[in-house]
């Protein structure tokens, strides 16, 4: 997709690109709703698909609507680092929750 640079150093995303993105977003919303009604036999698969589609949508919004595609490296570093931290928070607390060794009880 093409862009023009501006005197402030910002980028102008053409209307056409924005229309393409919003179309994609609405279609993806339709897909994710449809998929959620299917039964794959594994609940985990549903979560995975729903989150994968949500992430694609989030990427579309941030890359084009939010112009992240054109931001400098420090913005990327902070955003990625915050996402990594979030994963670590979820990962560690979740794994502690489920791997905590608790004894069998025989009262």
């Amino acid at each position: 997709m093409s862009t023009e640079t501006h005197e402030l150093g910002g980028h102008i995303v053409p209307y056409k690109d924005l229309v393409l993105v919003v179309t994609a977003l609405v279609i993806l919303t339709g897909i994710t709703v449809f998929v959620s009604t299917l039964d794959f036999g594994y609940a985990a698969l549903n979560i995975f698909i729903a989150m994968a589609i949500a992430s694609v949508k989030a990427c579309l919004v941030s890359l084009w609507f939010m112009h992240l595609k054109f931001e400098d490296v420090i913005t990327w570093i902070f955003i990625i680092f915050s996402l990594v931290l979030l994963c670590l928070l979820i990962g560690f607390s979740l794994s502690d929750e489920f791997l905590r060794i608790t004894p069998k009880v025989n009262f």
Binding site: L85, L88, F92, S95, D96, L99, R100, I101, T102
Partner: peptide
Amino acid sequence: GFLVWGHHLFVSGMAGWV
């Protein structure tokens, strides 16, 4: 420093490998 918080929980029944 972000990744060491668990050392406050060593005796809380935390999973061994964590």
